[in-house]
Simulated scan of single mutants.
Amino acid sequence: MKKITASLFSSLDGVVEAPDQWHFPYFNDEMGASVDARIGAADTILFGRKTYDSFAGAWPEREAAGGEDAYFAKKLGDARKIVLSRSKLDFHWRNSEQLEGDFTKAVTALKNEGDGTIGLSGSVSVVRQLLAEGLLDELHLLVHPIAVRKGLRLFDEADTPIPLRLAESATFSTGVLDLLYVPAEAPAAAGYEEARTHLPEEEQS
């Protein structure tokens, strides 16, 4: 079964919108390696329409230019790219197609196609749907030490909490936190009476 991994740049206050406006000062070799290990290793990439348009408008030209990022651009071009949209789409970037049918059934079918990784970069609306449907296997957050203070946040308001477990973590020299979360069981009910048992007690003389 394929694994679905979503990777997002996040500010300290949870903003994931328009990272091109605030995250580049923190991009270094450590972050480049982390991004390549997640999205660069995916054989299939799932996109929302806006994110796909942004990628398709930049990466094919970067691959053709043959610059320092051409290697990564070729990885993106060679990967199978599946776009979620309500409108019928025409594609000019190779290996691109549209997700057909019911979202949950279609994504479940993708997961069942065999081994490998389905990656996401950005595409917040798609990540939200995957989390809500229990289809996301890994949530990779690169948390930057900056409060952007405006913009879309990953988690919207809802009645149902989403429990997660921290599976891996690292701190880059820039102060960026590289965090990998996986689904978890909901914690047992508890209140202050349970919590206070873990407070330090006065030492006995």
Results as ranks from 00 to 15, higher is better:
L131Y: 03
I82N: 01
E157F: 12
K88G: 14
A109L: 08
P25Q: 08
I82L: 06
S11I: 13
S125P: 02
D159M: 14
K81W: 01
Y71A: 14
N95Q: 11
T171Y: 05
R153E: 13
K74L: 10
E203P: 06
A184W: 00
V16N: 01
D43V: 03
D159A: 14
E201K: 15
G151Q: 08
L154V: 09
A188V: 09
D115M: 05
A73Y: 08
G116Y: 06
V127L: 01
L8R: 11
L46G: 04
L199K: 10
L76G: 11
S54P: 00
A18H: 15
R153Q: 15
S205M: 12
R149G: 07
K75G: 11
F55D: 05
A188L: 11
V127M: 02
Q21E: 15
K75T: 11
P145F: 02
A79V: 00
G151E: 00
S123F: 03
Y52C: 04
L180M: 08
D29V: 07
T5L: 00
L110A: 03
S121P: 04
V16C: 04
L154Y: 08
Q204K: 15
L12C: 03
H23T: 14
S54Q: 10
S87F: 03
A186G: 04
E185R: 05
I4W: 00
K75F: 09
R128G: 14
E30G: 12
D102N: 12
V126H: 06
G67H: 05
E68H: 13
T160C: 09
R38H: 15
G77V: 08
L141M: 10
R196N: 09
F91W: 03
K111N: 00
K105N: 14
A147T: 14
D53P: 02
A18M: 14
L130S: 03
A186M: 10
T197N: 13
L199C: 08
R38N: 14
L99Q: 01
W93L: 06
S34V: 12
S87A: 15
A41I: 05
A170K: 15
Q129V: 06
G101E: 10
P187D: 09
A42F: 05
K75D: 13
E193G: 08
E97T: 13
E63T: 01
S205Y: 11
F47Q: 03
D20N: 15
A158M: 07
V15N: 00
A18Y: 13
G48Q: 01
D13P: 06
G191Y: 07
D115R: 04
I4Q: 06
D137K: 02
G77A: 12
D20L: 09
D43S: 12
S125G: 09
V127Y: 00
A158I: 06
L177W: 06
A6V: 02
N95F: 03
L89F: 02
E193F: 02
A6D: 09
A18C: 12
D20M: 09
V35K: 03
I4K: 06
T44A: 01
A132T: 13
A189P: 10
S85D: 06
A70K: 02
